[in-house]
Design a protein around this nucleic acid. Structure first.
Lengths: 345, 345
DNA sequence: GCTTAGCACTCTACCATAAGGAGTGCTAAC
DNA sequence: GTTAGCACTCCTTATGGTAGAGTGCTAAGC
């Protein structure tokens, strides 16, 4: 026994219907709502076959069928009608990006908000992660006492800063000397090319080596890839409460697990990183690499900056999510974001 | 009929017990657990009186009593045993502040996290709001094309930045000219003294007035009190999911209202601003100026920087919250934070 | 006159049982 | 291969009945 056209049609009908209702689907529902030109008894037989094949499952003997993870997988891979996003939408979305000042963090935030609004699920957007950014400018601003503000500007206007408390009150000239030298040597360099050797070479040329060493630590944090302080890679989350609208989350325990997860950014970061993406990827139920949300699905897409993949966005929802709509939306948003970033440049 | 010592004792016992169990409290429970040297029948009579007086209420005829808002109010004002925070705690909390780099936003975040951890309720902390900060430094960094990064440093190391896209590619010298002049004139000025007149006076002295006008807008946003872009005043929230542990939130609808509120920062900001504080303030049930959370209580305290009140922190929990513990904790954290900020200076 | 034991009464929470309904699988006829 | 018919299963909902907690009232005691 194997798949045939009719089985596919029935599977598709069951999944479409289940996505809408969240209730087990019976044979009569299918025969009435979908024009398959066969009786409910025939559909019953086919559904029993689909269950044997692993695409459907039955909560209990006298209930209708619900899709299994395997069923969703087949649906997403072979049965889905890709939804078309009307071109007029792009204009609307672009307007949202214009409202905010165009900083990376804001763009990411707007994106996550829109994704969650459009899909009514939870959106995750990772901000651009250490791509081929260039070093632009370093500024050392003396503050009161022994404190210095270290400000680093990176290509496309990303600014990071930190306050460092030194052993002694630094001389203004020394700070200027250091920052002038660093700016001379590093300006325009890709961040990934800036390594310890460059810093060591710099150190040799400096008068006040102690001061440099004190500042060095925070510079590394900003600049080098291993830096722990990076704004990039941060996860923006939006629409966490949308899951409460889903009937599969009527159980408080489940909600708890979910929301607790959202308070741990590391976990989300790891989650997204564990999913390899080329374009659009759907991860269904058991395939999800995080135990707590094995009864959910993820639709992930990557977005690019200067034609390099720099970040990811994802929708997290129940396995019974509206795949056609979500896939179309995520794909679309990734494209628009990439375009917006390119133009920003 | 009015309050007497025994009534007060019974009211206190009922509230203490209810805080622990979240169940209506019967007369027998009180007579057994608390040494009041009277029988349950007497307590029954007194409880009926307390109900007439409005301090207690009965969910239904044959249930025990639960405190009313008025009851909690009396408890908080007159009956409470202030809990003592052991001095050793301060050391522990200070350590937490040391872990992070000492930026205002981080300090605020650490504070909210600790508040929610210590109390097991939801914590809100407003970051310092436009106090007597001083202007420290302005830096204009040219980026690719027509873009300029505007970076402003304020006393105690608060840094804000924004990217501005200009009409034309600016000349490096002009940017330097402008920033030099602004730094000369504004350095050390309290932000609240920097007004339009000063900017207008500045404009007169500048060569490239067009460029200045373009930058002017974002400067105003950072500096002036009406600025919309202010980091300060932002609300940090932590422990939102803690409310799920409370039995009064076993109803999903209630949870929804609560969590939806948390996604709206404006509302939270407004909420805190509507509560006048001098030291520690408790807002109970109906007293809360936000309809959605009228069955909750807030414990609010303000913290200071350079001996001026600059921000607020609050714990939000059910009216049946552990007032002695929460009040002690909030008070304590506000003090420690104020101390930490003073030392940071 | 305040306190208390005793008791009838009320209301909820819980459990068991029953009825209703949706949906299946199987059989036999087409 | 398809379909009508039917017995069967299992869930859901409603019903009734009971146990338990707690009250308010009364009358006796100190």
């Amino acid at each position: 026994m194997e798949m045939n056209v009719r089985k596919k049609g029935i599977l598709k009908a069951v999944i479409n219907e289940y996505i809408l209702t969240a209730e087990p689907i019976g044979s009569r529902t299918i025969s009435k709502k979908y024009d398959l030109n066969v009786s409910s008894a025939t559909i019953r037989n086919e559904m029993a076959d689909l269950e044997d094949l692993g695409y459907l499952q039955q909560p209990h003997t006298s209930a209708g069928r619900i899709p299994s993870d395997k069923g969703y997988r087949f649906y997403v891979d072979s049965l889905i009608d890709i939804e078309k996003i009307p071109g007029s939408f792009e204009e609307m979305i672009r307007k949202k990006y214009l409202v905010r000042k165009k900083e990376v963090q804001d763009i990411v935030q707007v994106t996550s908000r829109m994704l969650s609004h459009l899909t009514r699920y939870t959106a995750l957007v990772a901000s651009p992660s250490s791509p081929d950014y260039f070093f632009q400018h370093l500024q050392l601003v003396p503050l009161e006492g022994k404190k210095v503000a270290v400000i680093v500007v990176i290509s496309s206007g990303l600014v990071q800063h930190q306050t460092v408390t030194l052993q002694n009150r630094p001389a203004r000239e020394e700070l200027e000397h250091i920052s002038r030298l660093i700016n001379e040597r590093l300006q325009g360099l890709p961040l990934k090319n800036i390594n310890n050797e460059i810093f060591r070479a710099l150190e040799k040329e400096l008068r006040d080596k102690t001061l440099f060493r004190e500042l060095y630590k925070s510079l590394v944090e900003f600049i080098s890839e291993e830096g722990t302080n990076q704004e990039w890679g941060k996860i923006h989350l939006d629409g966490a409460t949308n899951i409460l609208e889903q009937p599969e989350f009527s159980d408080l325990e489940k909600v708890k697990v979910f929301l607790k997860l959202f308070e741990q950014e590391d976990m989300l970061k790891q989650l997204l990183n564990q999913i390899p993406t080329e374009g659009l990827k759907v991860v269904i139920g058991r395939e999800v690499p995080l135990e707590e949300i094995r009864d959910c699905s993820l639709v992930v897409a990557d977005y690019s900056f200067q034609d390099k993949t720099v970040g990811k966005m994802a929708i997290l929802g129940p396995t019974r999510m509206n795949y056609p709509k979500v896939m179309a939306t995520v794909n679309f948003m990734a494209e628009v974001l990439s375009k917006v970033l390119r133009e920003e440049d």
